[in-house]
Amino acid sequence: MPHVLFHRLTTAAVALLVSGCTMFRGSPDDFTDDAMEMQPNPRRSETPSLLGPGSERITTGTLPVIRFAPESWRIMVSEEPKILTVAHWFTGHPERVLVTAGAHAATPEYARQLSDLRSQTVRRALIAAGVPASKILTVSFGEDAPAITQGGVAFSVIGTGEKP
């Protein structure tokens, strides 16, 4: 009789453990047949952003906004001089710049990803113009971008945090 009770208690404990795992933790990576092909996800280093902690260190509106054609991520010829203006600004400033992208598109998700591609395209253009990659951070909001982006890509200066 005691061993029956022990068996039932053990079974119940295992069942609880398993149900608890699958309810919130889901299948651990090791349990999936994709596990061997999966790579660790990188983690972003925490930096100031317009909506998050450290937003008080950010100054907006000092650099021009890059406009895009609807649902496009390619930099228009008319906007190329602005890229050079921004790249030139870096020569006299030690600060980093936050590239903030917005977009209006057919769906909110398309807008988020399209705006990411816009920010990446601008980042690559700045790097090609001689700006060190370490000076450029990006964040993409899609249709939820702050008004400063005007549906395109805006540049915000991240203060060093040092008092003048």
């Binding site: 919130f24 933790r25 889901g26 299948s27 651990p28 990576d29 999936t32 994709d34 596990a35 092909e37 999966m38 790579q39 660790p40 996800n41 990188p42 991520w73 769906t107 998700e109 398309y110 988020r112 990803q113 399209l114 990411d116 591609l117 990446q120 993409s140």
Partner: peptide, 30 residues
Amino acid sequence: THEGDPEIYLTTVTGGRSKRLTESQSVEFS
């Protein structure tokens, strides 16, 4: 988008690891 352009990835609800499923110079989403 951490590898460049927006691509589709698979992961689990723990999110620690992922597998890239697409590769293109366009926007892959939804």
